[in-house]
Design a protein around this nucleic acid. Structure first.
Lengths: 238, 238, 238, 238
DNA sequence: GATGAATGAGGCTTCATTCAT
DNA sequence: GATGAATGAAGCCTCATTCAT
């Protein structure tokens, strides 16, 4: 597990590894790597948008082609299946998480600050692509088992970003010893719930309020007396 | 049943209203109410099972008919649409929640005990129909808006069962003042998460451990000093 | 191998066995056996006609449906695949051979007469469904290996009808000892060639002439002196 | 009709005529004749191979391009159509026959020897390109009528090579008078059958045995008493 | 009330062909 | 001359729904 500030140094390699292990699974008939990148981005952008609104099954390849401004045939040069488009789409969303959380941590060193920033960032990325976030819950099961695993793996990797922050807090004596991955899930579900239950939550509080309240909830259980003091200091100096 | 101010007095009527407002939307060509009840149960049982495993779109009416041991034509005598079957199925799952939670509260009077029992029960019902629980997340959006509302309404009503317990604890001075419905969602998502992330959680802890840890998490934030004392007393007397 | 007059007594059972072993390979979603029989006959009749004229790949399921006067969907209730339709079609043609040759032998007892009648009948059935006969040569390879085997098996069984006649002639001392199955193929190809090369043969001779000349060709090589005498006696008494 | 040794003198012109009448129908966008020749050979070699194995319709232009080691676009510079590729492929096979049979006759003068050599050669070329030989039976009908005629014409020309030998035997008094072209077809089908029924024949005899037996079969019917004596003399002197 | 055969619109996917580079 | 990315018409097949028995 990374220490206080080693997190963002660890993440990129993990990212690279995932990418390496993922792209081979989806072969394109086109060899030009740059073009593949570009076209797939085009296709996925359209797909995520449509899948988010209408769901996987109600969205046709025709729809995606039209939205992306390309022909149906073109899609099939960059993708084997409609399933492929879904996989790419789901991964694209998870990718966003993995890109944005580290960005929010840049320059931050205090473990508690980093933890709060990470959860805050997670909630905000989810908010920024709310429908897309729900997509994972709706459609992952539409994938064949093997591909489902790829998605799960990507989720676990994103979770690591949070887990590392928690771990750092524990090691700094700010958090009590706890089941790190389980606590991570509490944080993850806090973020996801915002998207999953947005239809109701939006009537109960603002995103800011939601995050603040959620963090307090989590911290109440995790902070050690030392951690609590540290938190108050931070609050005071703000 | 909670005391305080009548929440439980609100629920049953709500139930009745929901039922009244629901069944009329799904008309059967068959008039004999008992038969309708029986046939629908048969159909829904098959549907929930298949939807849970294969998803809504991958399950055909033919599949459902075969699983239910009836003919295709029969299904269309008790249901207008494939959508109807989905709605009925989703409501059936929510129904279970609404049936089981009150059962777990029977005979309990202490507010804190009731709260814990409610959350515990919720987690356990969800666990008992894990796949079915996920179904709501996967397929609710496949429903036309109007019907989606019915499902949301049913969810809100289930939430009331938890909310009432929280409210009671607050009124008994055991919980701090809080946004009741928001906290309810924390509890609800605790239960739902068990199903949604079962693939990973099952490797991190047992259901018992999950519930216990989850409750502690929530209580850490909610209990007042009084509540904390009360909780310790309860633990001691156990 | 059947004796002089046992042939037609053996064929039917063989037929039955093949049928039993064939139908299970093609499952229908409809259970009513009579209806399946009727519908398949309808579909196959249309398919053979169209395949014969336009070939397998140029014929669409739509075409077949239209020709058969049924809907596309109906076809798929009696057949799994377009491949299935092809298999059924090919077998249907072979079936005709297996039905017509024994019919031509009914009541005939003299081995040489029977042999000539068998070859004659074969040539005439082929002529009666010329295009369909060619279909086997054009399209059998379009079938997956396993199904190709079924067709080959059916061909071998048809060949047995000829082979039995040859065998009987040998046993009666009319034909010299020879590689029965190989000679059978000469006879079979005589018949098939009429269809395969009809475009040219029809300008060289009539079917009657073709058969007569072909039989003479074959008999010239096979008849023993005894056989030759017997043949002349037959010719004289005619 | 050519005499004893005029055959190979006649063939080339016929060849040239056919070539003249064929190539114009298939226009290339490339003008350099040598290059056209080379590229087409490359394309056809790949096509024959793939068509033989997978059939015409299951083979894509992409497959052919890959097998030939050229681009898709290049193919369309040397060919108008996929149909064109098929025509070229079918003719290529027939070409082989027309090249190999005369080669087998080189230096032979005795009519009976020449006849046997011709049939023997035909059977052996067919054997050497068995799958390709079958291709003509499978795919000629996939061609539009006009082009089908070109293929038929090419077949008739190949037949002439055999017909000439038969004619020579008749004129030498070795064969009885007979319908030369019809008998030619018996010979042609003997050769073709080896490919068409190879799946079964290969289990009944060797190619050598097949040819020998086949020739005896044919000769039994054709040889005059003189011819028969001649044949025995040849056999004795061998 | 129950059945299940029949329908056909609509989706996914392939692949011959074109054309800009 | 050569390339291969792009196109989109067309085919196979599925499956919700109907209706005659």
């Amino acid at each position: 597990m990374p220490k206080t500030d080693g997190i963002d140094r660890e993440a990129p390699p993990a990212d690279a590894v995932r990418d390496e292990s993922r792209n081979p699974t989806i072969k394109s008939q086109v060899s030009d790597a740059v073009l593949v990148q570009k076209r797939r981005a085009q296709i996925v952008a359209a797909a995520v948008k449509l899948f988010s609104v209408h769901g996987y099954y109600r969205t046709t390849i025709q729809d995606i082609a039209r939205e992306a401004g390309v022909s149906i045939g073109l899609i099939y040069q960059y993708v084997k299946d409609k399933d492929d488009v879904l996989l790419l789409s789901l991964l694209d969303v998870l990718e966003t998480y993995k890109r944005e959380i580290p960005r929010a941590l840049e320059g931050l060193t205090d473990p508690l600050v980093r933890f709060k920033a990470a959860v805050d960032a997670y909630c905000r990325v989810v908010d920024s692509r709310r429908e897309a976030g729900v997509l994972n819950y709706r459609s992952t099961k539409s994938l064949p088992r093997e591909r489902r695993e790829i998605v799960k793996q990507a989720e676990i990797e994103t979770n690591q970003l949070i887990a590392a922050c928690i771990q750092a807090c524990i090691e700094a004596g700010l958090f009590r010893a706890c089941n790190v991955e389980l606590v991570t899930y509490h944080c993850v579900m806090l973020a996801h719930s915002w998207a999953l239950k947005y239809w109701r939550l939006k009537e109960l509080c603002t995103l800011d309020g939601y995050i603040e309240e959620g963090l307090e909830f989590i911290l109440a259980s995790l902070l050690t007396p030392t951690g609590r003091q540290h938190a108050e200091t931070l609050a005071g100096s703000r």
